[in-house]
């Protein structure tokens, strides 16, 4: 009896919490279809802000920058992070404390310190050599830096989950080191590589602070554009572009759900 009541109360609480979590997003989506420029009164349904969006070159180029940044940084981070994950696994019996500290550093470093450290460093290098002028290039370098640890940890935990004798079996069955990498290691950790790529991509798209400090005038990403628009006083297309970004996340969530349905061992990652 009592247990049932607790469970019912928790059930109600669950829906209240979901309401709390989705309310701000829902407001953004709702007002993106508002026919007037107001965040308080919804007059009638319209797509005018979406048309305005398509006509806004700044937003379109910001979108393009975000995609280029997320794509290229994720590819590099998956490459380097996978190598580290494998190295950590293969040599896990050695003392690798220094490496672990190094890997955790980008995770525990407050974004703001990370951002300004890179910004001032890039400015100094630029003053000395002319390289690393503010723009997409330095942004990619910084994004790769904070994505590497997540990739390395995901890949490492996948390796730990594999039966270690599989490595022996591959050797025993005539696989040379190169063939071993290609026909055994890469396929065996493929699920981890996919989720590492998606996590890196999400981290990159989600980042504002580090991008903000390392970007140049010509390399605004969507979050930077939105930030600027909010600071200057709200321009209404923001609801529309934000709605599109929310939609992209929800589609990604559904895809990841379908993937994890097939492979129940990969839990969703948060940030």
């Amino acid at each position: 009896m009592k247990r049932g009541a607790l469970k019912r109360a928790l059930g109600i609480y669950w829906w209240v919490l979901l309401f709390f979590l989705y309310l701000p997003l829902a407001v953004v989506v709702l007002f993106s279809f508002n026919s007037i420029n107001s965040a308080a009164i919804f007059e009638s349904f319209s797509l005018r802000w979406y048309y305005r969006l398509l006509a806004n070159d700044q937003i379109m180029s910001a979108l393009w920058h975000s995609i280029v940044l997320a794509m290229s940084s994720s590819v590099i981070a998956v490459l380097l992070g996978t190598l580290i994950g494998y190295g950590l696994y293969r040599h896990r019996r050695r003392g690798l404390g220094w490496l672990i500290v190094l890997i955790y550093l980008p995770i525990v470093m407050p974004d703001i310190v990370f951002g300004i450290a890179d910004m001032t460093f890039f400015v100094r290098i630029n003053a000395l050599t002319g390289w690393l002028a503010p723009g997409l290039g330095p942004m990619i370098l910084s994004h790769v830096t904070f994505e590497i640890p997540f990739v390395a940890l995901i890949v490492y935990s996948r390796f730990v989950g594999l039966d270690p004798t599989l490595f022996d079996a591959a050797k025993d069955l005539y696989a040379s080191p190169v063939k071993r990498a290609w026909h055994f290691i890469v396929p065996a950790i493929k699920p981890a590589l996919i989720s590492a790529f998606f996590l890196s991509f999400t981290l990159s798209i989600d980042d504002f602070v580090i991008s903000f400090f390392t970007s140049g005038p010509e390399s605004s990403t969507l979050p930077i554009y939105i930030w600027g628009a909010i600071r200057k006083g709200v321009t209404p297309e923001i609801n529309a572009i934000a709605t599109l970004m929310i939609a992209a996340v929800i589609v990604a969530a559904i895809i990841s759900l379908l993937v994890t349905r097939r492979r129940p061992q990969t839990p969703p990652e948060g940030r």
Binding site: D206, F208, I226, W227, I246, R271
Partner: peptide, 23 residues
Amino acid sequence: MLLAVVVPSWTNQVIRTFGWMNL
């Protein structure tokens, strides 16, 4: 259910905060 809790944190923090500004 876990995904439902996590998904809002996948959206950009500027957008999330903007949503609260509206509210």
